[in-house]
Every structure is written in C-alpha cells, then in structure tokens.
C-alpha cells in the first residue's frame, strides 16, 4: 500500500501508510491503542474505503475494481476479528459451514462435514462441534474464529488483535497457532497487535505505527535495539 490515508471527520486516523507484505511472510503491525491499526486492516479487507492512497492486493488496485471483482479478492483473504465475530445464533458446526455454503456451493454435505471436522481438529476443538459460541471460553472462541477463517484456505490472513483479552497461556497457544498456519498453508499474514509477546513469537518483520504513520520497521531484534526511545519502550 502506498500513501494510504483515512480520516473520520476531522480526526485523521491513517496519515501516510506505506507497506508491502511479501508472500509467506508474517508481518506484525505494532502500535498503541487508537493509532489506527484496526482501521488499516479494515481498509485492506474492504470494510472501510481509504480516502487517499493506493492499495494493491495480488497486484490489483482495489480502487479500480468493481464490487464483484472485490468479492473475488475477498475470497482469498481471511480475517480474524478482534471479537472473533462468531454467529451467536448458530452452532460451531453452522459457523464453519456458513462460509463454505456461501463460497463453495458445489460441495456435498459429506465433503462439508469432512472440512468442518478437519478445521476443528486443526485448532483442537473437535469436541465442540455441536456447542454454541456462548458455551465456549475466550480462547476457544478465538480458535473457532480462526478455524472459520482457515476453512477456505485463504492466501492472506489478517489478524486483528488475536491475543487481546486472553490469558498468557492461551495467548501463547494462539501465537503458536498463527505460526503453524503460516507454515502449513504458506499464507502471508498481517498481525495487528500491541501484545509484544505475540509479536515476538509470530513476526518475521515488524512495523511500528504512531499516530497513523509507520515510524519504524525491522525484525524483533532490530527494533528492540532501536535508537528511538519510543520504539524501544515497546520492548522493555
């Protein structure tokens, strides 16, 4: 993305964002709360339109695409919401079948059952298939959200605060799962977080955002030893 800008009224959230995500890379975007990290990820997935700048996904400028073409691109992107965004009125099985029914209409019920079971096994939730989201813990909900996203085998994964609100052990499990997803499916990932442990465990590269601008970029070790005390303060 090049010179991406987004404002809400007078409030300029993204001031000038430039970044590239390479294939098979886990890119962590680090920043304080309210610095526009979630807005950035929502611009990428198409939930918000940037005011200015260029956003290229799979080499195509999203501003020039028609709604149908955008939908086709969205099919190749998975998005794990901060709140997991599970459908409360559906069971775990229905939550997983929902994207399958929408995108792979030719699948038989047996094929769908197989994919659902496989997705649940991958995140360690095979026993929860008939439960409803309200019966699951925070960590389980997060894992289910991940399973629902991964069931369509996306090429790009976007994670919005994947460890927010979770205890350290569950956070560690989710971070490990993110790494595993990258290794298994060779996905490119953007992980939005302010959890430094999650960043350490998952990142190939880290970009630090301050007031809607990328202020630092590098590996975990590079940024830990940054000359900028504000950047370094994240790692202390």
């Amino acid at each position: 993305m090049e010179h991406l800008k987004k404002s809400f009224g007078d409030h300029r959230v993204l001031q000038d964002i430039n970044l590239v995500v390479n294939k098979g890379e886990d890119l962590v975007i680090l920043g304080q709360s309210g610095t526009g990290k979630s807005v950035l990820i929502k611009c990428i997935v198409g939930l918000l339109d940037p005011d200015e700048g260029k956003l290229l996904i799979f080499g195509r400028n999203t501003a020039e695409l028609k709604e149908k073409e955008l939908m086709e691109i969205r099919k190749r992107i998975g998005f794990l919401f901060q709140s997991s965004a599970l459908y409360d009125s559906m069971t775990v099985r229905d939550n997983l079948e929902f994207p399958l029914r929408r995108q792979l209409r030719s699948l038989s019920q047996d094929q769908m059952d197989m994919l659902v079971k496989e997705a649940l096994q991958n995140v360690g939730l095979a026993d929860a298939i008939e439960k409803t989201p309200s019966e699951l813990s925070g960590g389980m909900r997060k894992r289910l959200g991940l399973a629902r996203t991964l069931i369509l085998k996306p090429e790009i994964m976007l994670y919005d605060e994947p460890t927010a609100g979770l205890d350290p052990i569950t956070s560690k499990e989710i971070s490990a799962l993110i790494r595993e997803v990258q290794r298994t499916y060779n996905t490119s990932s953007i992980i939005i977080t302010h959890d430094i442990e999650c960043a350490r465990r998952t990142a190939n590269r880290i970009i630090v955002i301050k007031e809607g601008i990328c202020v630092a970029e590098g590996s975990y070790a590079d940024l830990k030893g940054s000359k900028d005390p504000w950047v370094r303060s994240f790692f202390e």
Binding site: F79, A85, P99
Partner: peptide
C-alpha cells in the same frame, strides 16, 4: 460484535 462485518468478508 462485528458479526455483520464478518458476513461481509465471508462473501
């Protein structure tokens, strides 16, 4: 709970 957004990104 962002369920409407989740539908939108689920095609």
């Amino acid at each position: 709970t962002e369920q409407i957004d989740a539908m939108q990104v689920s095609w």
